[in-house]
Amino acid sequence: MNARLFCTVIGLFFCTSLHAFVQGWSDFVMGAGNLTHQAGKYASDVGSVSYFEFRPLFTASYRYEYSPEFSFIPEVGITLPETSDDETSSTLYSFLNAPIAYHYGDWTFRFGPGFFFTRISGNGGTLRLQNGNTTDEFPVPNGSATTRNLTWNLGAQTNFDKDWSARFDVSILKLFDSEKRAMNHVLTLNYHFGSIL
């Protein structure tokens, strides 16, 4: 079932864009904001955790209006790459979501599946670090690894006017695994281009 869901999500995303080009979409939206990855999950210091991280995020989506109340809003998002202070590694996050939206006045509520990608890259080389009573050269990863997580996303958007909106989304990774379950959250300010055709 998960493989079919993946096919459907990816297929829906790319194929609705092609369909949009043919049919015309009601709204193309671009946003900028912040992504917090696995909020409260890891130690930001010994004995403390972080629920917010400053990590710029850019998104693009288009609203496929099925009815005045319901839409399908496929979306992509990507962060700026993060490079370690010693420039030996970098991390990049991206996502691909396929939520169904319900519109009520100036509010839009979104729910649906998606995929979250984590790309960690290393430049190779070594770092000299303490090892017991001496120091040693520890290898730094050479090459990249990309992970792919199925996510379940829930969010709300408020429209300031016809051009601007803000939204807050929560993405759950490993929803059914009580030990690994984690949550990302996204806050963006969006500009609505309207129909682009």
């Binding site: 770092l127 520890f138 290898p139």
Partner: peptide, 15 residues
């Protein structure tokens, strides 16, 4: 300001 990521290491050169 955004970007200060982390640099882990391995214990063998082959990863």
């Amino acid at each position: 300001l955004s970007l200060s990521a982390y640099s882990f290491t391995l214990n063998n050169g082959a990863g």
